[in-house]
Amino acid sequence: MKNENVSFILPFLLWVIVTLAYAFRSTLQSAGFPIDPYFSLLYAFPVILLILNKISSADMGFRIGKPLYGLYFLLLLPGILFLRYYFMGLQMQLAANWLILVVGSVAEEFFFRGYLQSQFEKSFNNTTISFSLTNFLFLLVHVVKGYSLLSSLMTGLIGVYFSFAKDKSGGDSLAYSAGAHSLYNLVTSSVQRIGVNL
């Protein structure tokens, strides 16, 4: 009974810590914190829980899943975005910080879609609740990041798309949501926005 309580409340608590780490990220780093506190916590929490056997790698979505669905999710949204920028005639050039973008995207998927979503799925046995709760918390992290209200809401919706990519009704593997997230971030950061208000 006690264990159940802990596994129910832990995702919420870890989200609070992760969000705090983001808010005080630059403060911590200027104080001499050697690695990015936000990304490292996003990786560290699920990994620690995996080692302690509190969650299973199947929950996290470490599997092949459904490659055909997965490929669809991987390419649909980033592809649409790419074609949009392409037909707008915008210059595309691989962002200089592409590695950080990929590492960061995978970290966020690791924590939000991998850990939070599967735990909420277990706690509530309800896809609607787990999807909306995960992506609401995902949205709020982007509010803290300083996105405008509209683009925060957009990240919430895009998060639902990533949730489907990871859920068993969609791609059924974390690889597809992480890949889609990375590609999406790469496309948005690689477009040359100079003089164009997107």
């Binding site: 159940e4 919420f12 808010a23 709760l133 709020l140 992290v141 803290v144 990041k145």
Partner: peptide, 29 residues
């Protein structure tokens, strides 16, 4: 806690929203 999980989630959602807005204010002073 599991007994009151919907109540907890409702309260947490409100708390999280305020929490995020305050942290945003801290970051973008």
């Amino acid at each position: 806690m599991k007994k009151y999980k919907y109540l907890f989630v409702t309260i947490f959602v409100v708390f999280a929203l305020i929490f995020a807005l305050v942290l945003r204010g801290y970051r973008l002073d």
